[in-house]
Amino acid sequence: MKPVDEYFFNQKEPYQSIMLYVRSVILNTLPEVEEKYSYRIPFYNIGKKPMIYLNILKGKNYVDVAFVQGILLEKQFPVLKNDNKRKQVRSIQLRTIEDLDHENFVELLHEASNSLSKSKKAWFI
């Protein structure tokens, strides 16, 4: 079993179901995305640049769907929040699968992919 698969299957519910659902949406929406296991969490890269990662922050009760260049997308997609005072990363916090607006998320994935493809660096701040 790949480390990223182990990570998902070792999560408690409802986090496991939420993460597996988000993973399937990402992989089905962006066939060019590469799933990696870095820093002990799943990352989704476009080329060699990280675009999204999934995490459960200590002391929080949600899955953090974090966009690396989220600061560039937060005006167009107000669902992205600045959690933990991060400089560049913005995220969607999911407590249930129903919290995810599928159509909006797919649009956000396409926009994030296009933005990252045009960018020279993944981390710019």
Rank of each mutant, 00 (worst) to 15 (best):
I92K: 02
E98L: 08
K121A: 09
E13F: 08
K81V: 09
K121F: 15
N45A: 08
K75V: 03
K120N: 09
N61V: 00
N61R: 15
E13K: 09
H102M: 05
L27V: 06
D101Y: 00
S115E: 15
E35D: 03
I26K: 08
I52N: 02
K87T: 08
F43G: 02
E103T: 06
M19A: 03
Q93G: 03
F124D: 15
K60L: 01
S115V: 13
K118W: 00
A122N: 07
Y21A: 06
Q93E: 04
S119G: 05
Q93R: 13
N45W: 14
V89S: 03
K81P: 00
E35P: 05
V22I: 13
A66W: 11
I18L: 05
E34L: 15
M51Q: 07
K2H: 11
S17W: 08
S38T: 11
S38D: 11
R23S: 10
E35Q: 12
Y37E: 01
K60H: 11
V63M: 09
K36I: 03
Q11R: 14
K81A: 14
M19K: 07
V106Q: 01
L108S: 03
Y62C: 13
Y37M: 09
W123Q: 08
Y39V: 07
I26R: 09
D83H: 14
I92P: 00
I18C: 09
L108D: 01
N84D: 10
Y53V: 02
R86F: 11
Y44E: 02
N114Q: 11
L94A: 02
V106T: 07
S91P: 00
E107F: 01
L57G: 04
R90Q: 06
E107H: 07
E35T: 06
V79K: 02
Q93L: 14
Q76F: 00
F77D: 03
N84Y: 12
I41E: 04
E34C: 11
E35K: 10
Y44R: 00
L73W: 07
P42Y: 10
L73K: 05
P14N: 06
I56Q: 07
V65K: 05
K120C: 06
E74H: 13
N55T: 00
V65D: 02
Q16C: 12
R40D: 12
R90K: 11
K48R: 12
G47S: 07
R90I: 08
S113P: 00
G59F: 10
F8Y: 09
I41Y: 10
A66C: 14
P14A: 08
W123H: 15
P3C: 06
F67D: 00
E6Y: 08
E32A: 13
